[in-house]
Design a protein around this nucleic acid. Sequence first.
DNA 1: TAGATTGTTAATCGATTAACAATC
DNA 2: TAGATTGTTAATCGATTAACAATC
Lengths: 218, 218
Amino acid sequence: MERPDAPPDVVIRRLPLYARSLRYLLEEGVHSVSSQELGERINVTAAQIRKDLSYFGEFGKQGIGYDVEKLLNHIDHILGLTHHWPLVVVGVGSLGQAIARYDGFQTQGLRIVGLFDSDPDKIGQMVDDLTIMDYSRLHAVISEHQARLAVIAVPATRAQEVADMLIEAGIRAILNYAPIILQTPDDVWVRYIDPVAVMHSLTYYLAREQGGAEVKRR
Amino acid sequence: MERPDAPPDVVIRRLPLYARSLRYLLEEGVHSVSSQELGERINVTAAQIRKDLSYFGEFGKQGIGYDVEKLLNHIDHILGLTHHWPLVVVGVGSLGQAIARYDGFQTQGLRIVGLFDSDPDKIGQMVDDLTIMDYSRLHAVISEHQARLAVIAVPATRAQEVADMLIEAGIRAILNYAPIILQTPDDVWVRYIDPVAVMHSLTYYLAREQGGAEVKRR
DNA sequence: TAGATTGTTAATCGATTAACAATC
DNA sequence: TAGATTGTTAATCGATTAACAATC
């Protein structure tokens, strides 16, 4: 008796996009959607959506499609979004502040329970209803709220030591905005947000389009 | 006579990471690096680095490795980073401001030439040395600077119309921070930065680790 | 020369897509 | 019933890795 394959990580990364699109559909008052229609909204093939969902169960009806609300509930359950996840943000520069202020972070199953910075001038200041704290309080706050998620928004030179502290304090998953690859234990999840690298992959294509652009302009 | 394969997009996305790591090595005064060493820094296999680079030429020396500065120059050329790319930012909320203020955006081959917002109260205000402008000036500014890159940092509800305007005005590549998939012509490049979706893929794994965490704690 | 490491080919692995029986 | 669409299997496509001759 084979254990069914664990869903590949690419699938897990797409689930939140399906969930979001379903939320928009729900707001629009759409009750039912086919894999075809959902796929067109998010530029994914219908086959891929059906295949992705099949890792988790059977959520649709032949000839009909998917009930938007029901499928959304299923995906939210799969992603663990039926409750809120406490998280801490380290580094309260303009990026850290933007994260702390961003609605989408505070809603959607995430709740910031601590803001931390190393700058003594910032300690004690508030961002909305959150007080910026010293690193010395990291461990206590993470323990108190049982936080396992963290965002790193410090300069690259500081990111590795911050990651080490966070992991030491019990953090199991990190979203890293610092432009540096972190060295972490295998059982800690790390994801990167790297807008400059993304931009540089775009300049690659633009640099090659110069001629084409002239043509297109007629 | 076959045209050599165009490098796959995954490869193009990794090049900026190689470039950055090489920049750090250069700062550290390291002159030579093997694919093995470079790979360890960025969690990529040595074979993958060599394969990726082979799409563009032969940059190393058997038995020795790569000259850090030379390889960096090659990659910068490949990515088009030998000159600066003008770009516009639309949406100057806290995220747009963070982008405008971020050094890494203004250096590293990118130069913000226009900030735009729809809020009349913001028009005319400055972020560092950039004035926030009305959408009516989009076309003129993009034309004047020949900008082909744009960042969208407006709410999801506004992102599609902003994308349409940008493309109409000559933008060919978009970095979209709004949590919505854009519908764009095939010849326009779009990349997404979606921290909440990334977080939700992490909660998936954390939700499954509850038991494991207990075990690990002993 | 001996040791190290590249560039490249072939093998492997994994993800996407096409196709269709099942069935609403 | 006829038409639509799912869930799943098999085929295809593409990316990663292993291995090694070439050579510094």
